[in-house]
Structures are given as structure tokens and as C-alpha cells.
Design a binder for these strands. Structure first.
Lengths: 147, 147
DNA sequence: GACAATAAAGATGATTTTAGTCCTATTTAT
DNA sequence: ATAAATAGGACTAAAATCATCTTTATTGTC
């Protein structure tokens, strides 16, 4: 349907939250779930994907929780999304050569290729560090408005 | 899942086929279905959407069939897709202001807006006439290769 | 007017995906 | 040991996907 699933949305929120925390701080699932408005038990699933993808590190037991596995500057929006949704392909014909046998003579194929390139350019171009910084700026604006 | 459905794929194929026909020619569903490798009864549904969207005109009865309702130059890929899938939104937060109540302070929102803008730019920029012409060029190339 | 060809429209259904919940491990600091 | 935390699998309801089939409406020809 050409739109992001909950999985992707929640993954971005979670990684963004961790990126906004002081370095080295460990965050609880319940903490992330509440602030990011994600069902806790669902989030648990999402976090596991993020861990397996190497974006997030977890610690079990008392004083456990989650933190980024890498600097927020090195994690892109695309990576967060693909960690839970798998690789992004606007159309199956982009999965790999030969996936669609009409490839050779289909004039639509190159259009999708270009569309996908442009989409990914945006998602690749936004790091979690940048998002976190944008978020801070926004929350200052909101507070000003409320005065 | 961020990818095109069959509906969208088939719609593009069907409109493209009609765009490649001599002007004024009426095409049968079975003809479109066979050449475009779309199940006939499924295609029937798709064609109805295209008719209602005003991209295609139909005639019932003997000698009936389908033809473009407008010049192929005036039909974009986006229009063909949205005729069957509805408006394209990469994320629900783009549907309309207020759809996502995190809008005001969410730094991710503008990124999706930009990504969507770029994607639509590509789909808006490709007319069915252009695709048909690209298709012709491609089929010549394929024939050459086969020699 | 009867008939055949054709699309329109609606009912139905199998399969997959989505969006979760819940329960039982397993790990770990104290 | 115990309490606090994540890990991971089983389960589910609802929706979307990808169709098929049947009936109805329209239209040209004889």
C-alpha cells in the first residue's frame, strides 16, 4: 500500500528516543513505551529487531534496559526502518534483476528505480543525531507558543 | 510495507497498453489481460476503477471495450496508481494536518513530507505517452539483441 | 424481437499481513 | 534466593491482498 507500517514508525520513535538521551544512559522499555506512545509488549518485539540489527544494545536483569549500540550520528532513518521492515522496495521489480521477467522490456521499471533512489536519498540523509537535534529545536518552539 | 500493490501495478500496465494503441482503437479486456499478463477477471475490476477515475472510457455490448478517455500526454503514472489505490501517503502523518497528534513536535514528520514530495515528483513527471515511447524504444533494443 | 458479445457490479473466499497480547524463559545485580 | 529486567515464542482478531464467479446491463446484428 506504499506506506509505512507501525513497525517502522515505532522503530524510528524508539531509536530517536534513545538518541535523545544522555550518552551512556540506559532506558527501560516502559520508559520508551510511555513517552513514545507505543504499546509496551509490542515495543518489546521491535526492540529485539533493533538489537539483532546492531543498532541498539540491551542489558538484561536488574538495572537492564536499552541504549544505542553506535553513535546517533551513524544511524540513519533508513537503517531504523529496515531493521524492522526489511529492505525497502517500492516495487517487486526492484528486489533483484530477474525478479520480474518483464524487466528487459518494461519502461516502468526505470521509473520505479529512480523514485526509489530519491526516496532512499532522503531516508539515508537523515541521521538520528540530526533528528534528535531537530526535535529539541521543535520542542523549544512549542513551549514558546504555549506562553 | 512501503510497496506497490498488484492493483497499482496492473493499473499502470493497463493504461500503458491503451496508450500504446493507435488513437481511437478499442481494446478488449481479454486482449489487455493476455498481453499484460493480468488475470482477466481481476483486470475487469481494475478497469472499472480506471473508468470511474476518468482515465479510461468503456463501451459495453458488441464491439465494446476500452480506450483512453484523455490524451496519453495528460495521464501521469501517479494518476493511474491513485485511481486504484487511492491517494499515496508514505506515512499516515501526511494524510492531513492533525491526523497524527504528534505533528507539532515530531521531527520525523518533515522528513516524510520531503520524501513523499520527491517520490511524487517522479511519478507526476512521467506521462503515459512518455512511457509508451520509452517502451517502443526498449522493444527495438530487445529485438536487436535477439538477432 | 432474438441473440450474441461485451463490460458493470456485486458476492464470495483463500491467503497473507498487520498490529497487537500473553506467557514463559533467561539473565543479572543485590 | 529474589526481584527486576529483557528474550522469545505462541496466539489472535482484524484488515488487506489477490483474486474468482455469477448475475445484470448494454449494444450491435440478423
Amino acid at each position: 500500500m506504499l506506506n509505512l507500517t507501525r513497525d517502522g514508525e515505532y522503530a524510528v520513535r524508539a531509536v530517536l528516543y534513545l538518541s535523545s538521551q544522555p550518552e551512556g544512559k540506559i532506558s527501560l522499555i516502559s520508559e520508551i513505551a510511555e513517552t513514545q506512545e507505543v504499546p509496551k509488549s509490542y515495543l518489546s518485539k521491535i526492540m529485539q529487531h533493533l538489537v539483532r540489527a546492531g543498532l541498539v544494545r540491551s542489558r538484561r536483569g536488574i538495572n537492564g534496559g536499552f541504549m544505542l549500540a553506535r553513535p546517533a550520528e551513524s544511524i540513519t532513518m533508513r537503517q531504523a526502518i529496515e531493521a524492522v521492515e526489511g529492505p525497502i522496495f517500492l516495487n517487486i521489480c526492484l528486489v533483484k534483476k530477474g525478479e520480474c521477467h518483464r524487466d528487459d522490456f518494461c519502461p516502468v521499471h526505470p521509473v520505479w528505480k529512480e523514485a526509489q533512489r530519491r526516496l532512499l536519498e532522503v531516508l539515508d540523509g537523515k541521521t538520528m543525531a540530526a533528528l534528535a537535534s531537530d526535535g529539541e529545536a521543535l520542542s523549544k518552539k512549542v513551549k514558546k507558543k504555549q506562553k
